[in-house]
Amino acid sequence: MDDLYRDYILEHYRHPHNFGVIETPDLRWEGANPLCGDRITMMLDVRDGRIADVAFTGRGCAISQASASLLTDELRGKTLDEAARMSADDVLDLLGIEISPARLKCALLSLDTLEHALAEGGPPASPGDAGTPAGVDAGGTEPD
């Protein structure tokens, strides 16, 4: 009966892909929806302008966590430009479920976090209003 909580959404919620920590990421951002208590930290490793590795941690509702799981799957291998072009519609397509206006913020938290990570998640620290680029590796722009 429940369109929102399809099996694959629940599967991504219970066993999110790319859930974990990259110790010294090139880009990192902690995003939050303070009103819901949803929280996502996204970490990216970049090689030759492409996303070589991506991981996230956090807690929140099934929609926000499944969205982060699906989005991070999509990001691996993309160039930074391609990643930056990811739109809200792309993320909603990945989710593949009808999202009500009240849950849109949950569904798009991962995209918002990604956008911040790409724009201001690298060293030197540049505090933004939606989160913080905490724990960025000092020499992280050129790993390997």
Binding site: L4, Y5, C61, A62, I63
Partner: peptide, 29 residues
């Protein structure tokens, strides 16, 4: 294991209205 938003969303399918969130008491949470 279930976020309150998801609890409220499922309950809504049954016509049951409950509040989910921090209820304007973030320091208490």
């Amino acid at each position: 294991g279930v976020h309150p938003h998801d609890v409220a969303q499922v309950l809504d399918r049954f016509g049951v209205c409950v509040r989910a969130g921090h209820h304007c008491t973030m320091p208490l949470h």
